[in-house]
Write a protein that binds this DNA or RNA. Structure first.
Lengths: 246, 246
DNA sequence: CGTTTTTAATTTGTCAGACAATTGACGTTT
DNA sequence: AAACGTCAATTGTCTGACAAATTAAAAACG
């Protein structure tokens, strides 16, 4: 994307975020004037958010901010922290040792986060315990600067919850890849299992509304303790229902 | 989206699909001329595909078609058969041995399908091969009568595709549970792996629009060959400005 | 002839201005 | 009060243009 595009998307994201869901955005000429760009460039940026389902454009009527889903579904469709999930499915959990360190990013991490290789990142690792037994192990990689030193010191729960509570930058969605990995020595020790035993792994990219990855995470789950499910619709995805609040 | 936009995106998608990955697309003026639209409209459509990660635009160098991942990748939001998925991404898979038998249902199956215990069910098992190596093993349990003997004889692909093609009863959605299991002797033999090795497992209930479970299935996947992902939406209203009206 | 430098064409990013078609609010009429 | 016509507003689309950097061709040089 272009140089100015990044900034434009970010500023447009803020305007969208500060518009109550269901409300109409200012007209395109007005927005373009306010953002200091041409209407063509603005429309391209808006197409980005339209593709993501954040806004809905109705010809000759205006552009509306989409209403986020009203009901909280159980399952993977809605992003929630493991802590929230665990307590909801009746697991009384506690947090094991937390490891927080600032270090330079690996090439893979830099690529995932869309940052320069070698830029510093914050590496947060923690385990989730139930009855003194680890059932989940979570690794969060966030670019330096996203979380301040003060926030890091007072860190108690999940990175996601911290970002949600803080409210900025506004979060959009998480792309979560599902996989199975064999426990290496480190993971086997953490979970108290044999090396090579299967673990459920989620690799996730957390996106802000401006399309930037703000958190790159690995979550390992001991089989049997969590039950993730997803509702898969039959048919095509295209043409999402407007779902506008009047 | 506009009237012509849908058609434009479709035609542009065909051009992108027919361009070898890694190759450069024709320049924007040329594409616009070929598609009979203005450059501005073309660029909006291209932004759509850029958002989806299908193409990559490099300023002053050209627009390139992204290399699709080598592994089978699909979002879980939409239900489709492994066969359809494979053909859609151009992967050559074949079907291994198919086992179809009619037998009485187990208590668990009867409960899942909402039928009387002991009612007969059809048990369909098959493996998916790529280069003579099993990468998936699928078990479908459907109530007797859902699939006729004739349909069973001519069975070639997936149960889901059969039901979709038939059109009746109309299908609604599938609830899919994600888990990790250790390969037992049977699965280890099928996949050519060690007993105890981890396998990704989907346990799914396929619902008709009338809410009845028409298919209860177990799908086992060899790690590394499939990449399932799901987009998780942030479940929190992101409106920093409280909506004081209403 | 091979290598390096210069030049020109190419390509995306962006802008300004314009027109069409339809909507939705407003005023008017019945 | 309800139905109707009017008109400003809004998105969709088009044309034409320029800037900046890349890329390939051409030219210069040894």
């Amino acid at each position: 994307m272009g140089d100015a595009t990044q900034g434009l998307q970010e500023r447009l994201a803020m305007i969208i975020a500060s518009t109550p869901p269901g409300d109409r955005l200012p007209s395109e000429p007005e927005l373009a004037r306010k953002l200091g760009v041409s209407r063509a460039s603005l429309r391209e940026a808006m197409r980005f958010f339209e593709t993501q389902g954040v806004i809905h454009r109705r010809p000759r009527a205006g552009t509306y901010v989409m209403q986020p889903p009203a009901v909280i579904e159980t399952g993977l469709e809605v992003l929630e922290s493991i802590d929230t999930l665990a307590s909801r499915i009746g697991l009384s959990v506690s947090m094991g040792d937390v490891s927080i360190q600032k270090r330079v990013s690996s090439p893979e991490e830099a690529s995932a986060l869309g940052i320069q290789e070698g830029t510093k990142v914050i590496d947060i690792r923690r385990s989730i315990l139930t009855q003194k037994k680890a059932v989940a192990y979570l690794i969060d990689i966030v670019p330096e600067g996203v979380i301040s030193d003060e926030e890091m010191r007072g860190f108690q729960g999940s990175v996601l919850d911290l970002l949600l509570r803080r409210g900025s930058p506004p979060l959009q969605s998480s792309r979560c890849e599902i996989n199975v990995v064999q426990a290496n020595r480190e993971l086997a020790k953490i979970f108290g299992i044999q090396r090579g035993d299967g673990l459920l792994m989620f690799k996730a990219w957390l996106y802000t509304v401006s399309g930037q990855v703000i958190d790159y995470s690995f979550s390992y789950f001991l089989p049997g303790y969590f039950r993730f499910h997803v509702v898969r619709r039959v048919g095509q995805v295209f043409s999402p229902t407007p779902n506008l609040s009047t």
